Simulated assay, not measured.
Amino acid sequence: MTGVPASAAGGPSAAKGGPAAVSGAPSGAAPSAPSDAVSGTAAAVHAGAVPAVEVVSAAASEDGVDSGTKPARGKKIAAAAVNQASVWNIANLLTMLRLVLVPGFVALMLADGGYDPAWRSFAWAAFAVAMITDLFDGHLARTYNLVTDFGKIADPIADKAIMGAALICLSGLGDLPWWVTIVILGRELGITLLRFLVIRYGVIPASRGGKLKTLSQGIAVGMYILALTGWLATARFWVMAVAVVLTVVTGLDYVRQAIVLRRQGIAERQAALEETEA
């Protein structure tokens, strides 16, 4: 039987996985693709080109099994967040808390005629909690991939509800002129409607001015909720004046962005249509 390859003869090298088998020596029948992959990997490990640890790790990862190496902390948190991205996640729970706080805030604000300093302090605490959770729920949702359809709808509703309730209560009690409430709420509702109208062309991003507007509104309304006197009562007037100015300026800027976005979207559609017809 001289002249017959060891792999065909079933010799020791082939039976025990010796060099002839590992190196992928030719045989009478063409090996299958998995055999080639195993042989090539084994040969690479045998030659020292690929560390055995990396080969085991890659194989375990492809099989969906933990290779034993610890992933980065951020990756572990992100993976856990993806698995838990349901309605009952921390971001949505904070949004729900804000919605629950709205009727509680109104009850505290109007308790005992609406002018008791103690009840107003409790109302301020509820308003402060709502504003603080507003800062965290969106950040958590984006950072840990917890964005849900419920959150997209409920978050802006909760924001407008707590601010609207505070402004209406203050104006109803005579602490804040009605025109201020109308300007702020009109701007918020108008910009929300505008975003929906141009959503087909793109999304209007939140600007720094818009974030500063939200912060100034929260501080100003919070100061009006508290029963302040003296120079603090004067200071809250100017803080509210800044908030109103930012409200109007940023609102006009959003209108400008919406017009530009719509024009760009229409131009892109026409260009795409012309290319298709050509």
Rank of each mutant, 00 (worst) to 15 (best):
H46P: 03
A47T: 05
P51T: 12
A52Q: 13
A52C: 10
E54M: 10
V55T: 05
V55R: 02
S57T: 12
S57F: 12
S57W: 11
A59G: 11
A59I: 11
A59P: 03
A59H: 09
A60V: 05
A60Q: 09
S61N: 14
S61E: 14
G64C: 06
D66H: 15
D66N: 13
S67E: 04
S67L: 07
P71D: 03
P71W: 12
R73V: 14
R73N: 10
R73M: 14
G74M: 08
G74R: 11
K75N: 12
A78Q: 13
A78K: 14
A78G: 11
A80E: 11
A85W: 08
A85S: 10
A85E: 08
V87M: 15
W88N: 11
N89E: 01
I90M: 13
I90K: 06
N92C: 00
L93S: 08
L94Y: 02
T95S: 00
T95H: 02
T95C: 04
M96R: 08
L97N: 09
R98E: 12
L99E: 03
V102A: 12
V102D: 07
G104Q: 08
V106D: 08
A107W: 15
M109L: 04
M109E: 02
L110D: 11
A111Y: 13
Y115H: 15
D116K: 09
W119F: 14
F122E: 11
F122D: 11
F122V: 14
A123H: 06
W124E: 06
A125D: 09
F127M: 03
A128F: 15
A130M: 02
I132C: 05
I132D: 01
I132Q: 05
D134Q: 04
D134M: 06
L135D: 05
H139G: 04
H139E: 07
L140H: 11
L140M: 14
R142F: 06
T143S: 08
L146R: 00
L146N: 00
L146V: 01
V147C: 03
T148H: 03
D149I: 09
D149F: 12
F150P: 00
G151D: 12
G151K: 11
K152F: 02
K152W: 02
P156I: 05
P156S: 06
P156D: 06
I157Y: 06
I157R: 00
K160C: 04
A161T: 05
I162R: 01
M163V: 10
A166E: 02
L167K: 02
L167Q: 02
L167E: 00
I168G: 01
C169M: 08
L170H: 05
L170K: 06
L170G: 00
S171I: 07
G174Q: 01
G174N: 01
D175P: 10
D175H: 15
D175Y: 15
D175G: 10
L176E: 00
L176D: 00
L176G: 03
P177C: 04
P177W: 09
V180E: 04
V180F: 13
V180D: 06
V180K: 08
T181Y: 07
T181A: 12
I182R: 05
L185M: 10
R187D: 01
L189V: 10
G190T: 04
I191N: 01
